[in-house]
Amino acid sequence: MVAARPAVETVWQWLSAVLDPEIPVISVVELGIVREVAWREESLVVTVTPTYSGCPATEVISADIEGALRAHGIEQVRIETRLAPAWTTDWLAEPAREKLRAFGIAPPGRRDPPLSPTGPTQRPGRVLDIRSLDAEAAPVCPHCGSAHTRLVSGFGSTPCKSAHVCNDCLEPFERFKCH
């Protein structure tokens, strides 16, 4: 019998203070990677969905979550990984998009239609023409607000970002890729 077993709602609040190590203005909850918090017998199980298969931040995030929960006095914490449905930027919380912009990162566009946070991953249509795979519109510059920007590289400083330049203010910036 554990007297002071915190409610999962409380745990969710604690997790809202655990920041993404690569983008330390948004929390792991806002990022949409914490899929479930549940007590299983004496253990608190936090289910996390990875962003990209090879994202090196994944292990840091798990360690940060575990550390934060231990700091709140929870002794038995288990982090479980869930691959399906695959993470999508549609799960990014609305306030997180504004925080990204303020941090200098253009937020991702939305998939149309948006992917369900709980349902199976929607499979994209079979587009065999590779050229038409690239449907994401040019991002708005997070510095000056201009829509006149160009892609420098589809790959940025982390797997989740792409590199762009603003044609008006000439500043380089990154975008959180629509994924």
């Binding site: 990209y52 298969s53 090879g54 994202c55 420098v152 589809g154 790959f155 797997p159």
Partner: peptide
């Protein structure tokens, strides 16, 4: 940019 793109791809594949 190419260096970063190649290694990003390598990282995805490693994952």
């Amino acid at each position: 940019e190419e260096d970063i793109a190649l290694t990003n791809t390598a990282l995805d594949l490693l994952g």
